[in-house]
Simulated assay, not measured.
Amino acid sequence: MDLTHRPRRLRTDGIRPLVRETTLSPSDLIAPVFVDATTDERVPIGSMPGHVRVPVSGIVDRVEEVLETGVEAVMLFGIPESKDEVGSRAYAEDGVVQRAMRAVSEETDAYVVGDVCLCEYTSHGHCGVLTDEARGRWERLHRGDDPAHVTDSSLTVENDRTLDLLARTAVSQADAGADMVAPSSMTDGMVGAIRAALDDAGHEDVPVMSYAAKFESAFYGPFRDAADGAPAFGDRSHYQMDPANAREAMREVRLDVEQGADVLMVKPALPYLDVVRAVRETYDHPVAAYNVSGEYAMLHAAAEKGWLDLDAVARESVLSIKRAGADLVVTYFAERLAEDLSTP
């Protein structure tokens, strides 16, 4: 037996950390934070243990809690006081996210990322302006007609009419102090429209982190509960990507690169590590991955059953995302991981 090569030589305590290929630190993480215009107190999110909706008056304290763990960046999601068909509170100067951003940017050192989408703000829950056909379906549902008439998801959102609203939302967030904007609607041309609008408004230095490959995933459920953003009819399969398609993902990413995206996001993370790796190997842009709510919730559920060690699987999961090629990870484990990483 030839034992010239013994990989176990490099697995002892002294040398193991020195030859570690992938590292994880709090500065790699972005913590999602939910701000709610409909409440005056913290509201626990049942499907996402440890997370809450906070009122605008409490957003600074919440962000300071994040910063104390060593995490330096937050992504803000808003629950507005009212919704309408075009999601106008998403781009209102006094919108919930805009007010929160002003407070956070003025009173903390956090790096603030704004989610640019309309689904949390539209009365129908879709990520843009409805087509005439879809609007008719929505009106029938709203009147209480047979829901069977409104289940078809084809051509729900008018792509080009949505671009202006996304651009207005991005500019309003930059005006309010966002350090980065992150369009997540998978609208064709969204990066180009937002980049042009930011530049025209004097925000040339605000980067765009595009959700360049966002899949129509079953792992989003807890987030839709947290942000009150589930579609009222149909689904998002005609504008979010088919989970079966990896080559299409690379085409989507390429288009966003051509339109000026600064950071490229893959969402979700764990079921799409092959896409994260492909993006990393193809482009020299920073790569982000979103460790989504369903990934978070399933590990919590297993840990509550005593089947898994939550801290261990959280660290291993996010480490795998980095190993696949992500430079930064948006994760609901950000604070827990940061505190765990600071422990010798």
Rank of each mutant, 00 (worst) to 15 (best):
G177L: 08
D175K: 10
M190P: 13
A196Y: 04
A174Y: 09
I194Q: 12
A176P: 08
D179M: 04
M180A: 12
A176W: 00
A170F: 08
G189W: 01
S185D: 15
D199V: 10
A182T: 02
S172W: 07
V191T: 14
A167G: 10
A193D: 09
V171R: 06
G192W: 07
D175Q: 13
S184Y: 03
L166W: 01
V181W: 00
S172E: 11
D175F: 07
A182R: 05
L166Y: 00
D188C: 09
I194T: 11
S185P: 14
L198I: 07
P183T: 01
M186N: 09
A196L: 05
M190R: 05
D179K: 03
D179I: 00
Q173E: 15
V171W: 08
A167Q: 05
M190T: 06
M190D: 14
R195C: 01
G189M: 08
D175E: 15
D199L: 07
G189D: 11
Q173V: 09
R195W: 03
A176L: 03
A176K: 00
Q173G: 15
L198S: 12
G189Y: 03
S185N: 14
M180S: 07
M186P: 09
D179F: 01
S184W: 03
A197H: 12
A176Y: 01
A167H: 04
A167C: 10
A176F: 03
